[in-house]
Design a protein around this nucleic acid. Structure first.
Lengths: 209, 209
DNA sequence: CGGCATCCGTGACGATACTG
DNA sequence: CAGTATCGTCACGGATGCCG
């Protein structure tokens, strides 16, 4: 049983760190923001985490009311973990961390792992204020964003589950430039660094900008 | 030499956690947002941290470009630690964490330590959009806020270093209610739960609201 | 095979003592 | 005052094994 180590400070930031300050916890939240995931998928997208630590963190998050465990209906019955409302409210924390860390994110190091959906958070920041389902195509893979969604997953792996309001094709460098604010979304579209497809309102907004 | 343990992920949030994800680091940042502090003062306001961990974290933060060490001019020559620009940019991270953790901050537990200036971050959130030097008086002690400051410390311990634009006298419960958004600033003033003193523009704004 | 539990070596952490 | 030294304990990472 994982003995919780509290800071024992009457301070809301310290309380938050009591719950999500352990190693790997916030990165697990980042993964679960992509919707329900199986244990094995989580383990695959969190290279370096040991099996027992992952299991222990998931148990902690369940007990602390951040996530839940659910059995998928057959066929393909398996357990999946998913954030609940309280867990999804950690999005601003990850956004603040990501915005700050963007300046440290230089070139990719040879030891660095990459997953396509890790670019979802920076892109969501760039699309702040918009609304709709966006499919994103990177060389590293595809994912989709529920821009402006109030409930449910914030993004997901793979192609969009239905007709997206916009399709974006871009590369990692453009992603990084957007995230760092060096490049505006409109500029990137105008410069041809983002290919905008689809015919939803959002696609038109992006093309016209 | 503290061997850095990286997540080795090409993701800005993971990079941020490489730098500030270690235990105590973000709480040290919270302390240093109050301006230059001596080692002993830091140790006193971070109950539970061991001396070697505190020394090690400060060294890491210096090496990573978050903070610096400076010798105060005599008399009272001593070393102080202070955040630089990069470190101060962590304010939004602490704000996001604090906003999320506010919901977990119930009643004070008997084991919880308290310091007056730990209420500075929630109050700054409540005063968002304003500007000026604010002196705050709680039963637990006094501190001051540089509301809307672009550089230098964000808040400080003790009375304001000069004539404040406003003086607030309130209690911890009111602070908590403000931080949770249960209570608006204007409502609190109108309900007499905040005593507003001083004759700066900010004081007038608060009284009129 | 997915989903853990167990074991083990290493390093991080916390408490205390001690030193310039 | 500002740390360093020492030490016991626990958390972490890696591997392996078990069980449905």
């Amino acid at each position: 049983m994982s003995r919780r180590r509290s800071y024992d400070q009457y301070c809301s930031a310290a309380r938050a760190l009591d719950l999500v300050g352990d190693r790997w916890t916030l990165l697990i939240v980042r993964e679960l923001l992509a919707g329900p995931r199986r244990y094995t998928d989580l383990h695959a997208d969190l290279p370096g985490v040991s099996t027992d630590v992952l299991a222990s963190r998931l148990k902690d998050m369940e007990r602390d009311g951040l996530a839940g465990r659910r059995r998928l209906p057959p066929p393909g019955a398996a357990y999946v973990y998913e954030l609940n409302g309280r867990g999804r409210q950690l999005l601003p924390v990850l956004q603040a961390l990501g915005a700050w860390g963007q300046a440290e994110l230089g070139a990719r190091r040879p030891t660095d792992a990459v997953r396509a959906h890790w670019f979802a958070l920076p892109l969501l920041r760039a699309l702040d204020g918009e609304h709709g389902l966006v499919e994103v195509r990177l060389d590293e893979g595809d994912f989709h964003l529920f821009v402006g969604a109030q409930e449910g997953p914030v993004y997901g792996d793979g192609p969009a589950p239905g007709e997206p309001d916009a399709r974006l094709v871009l590369d990692v460098d453009t992603c990084t430039a957007l995230a760092q604010g060096e490049l505006g979304l409109a500029d990137a579209v105008r410069a041809g660094r983002i290919e905008v497809g689809g015919d939803g309102t959002l696609a038109k907004t992006l093309r016209e900008a």
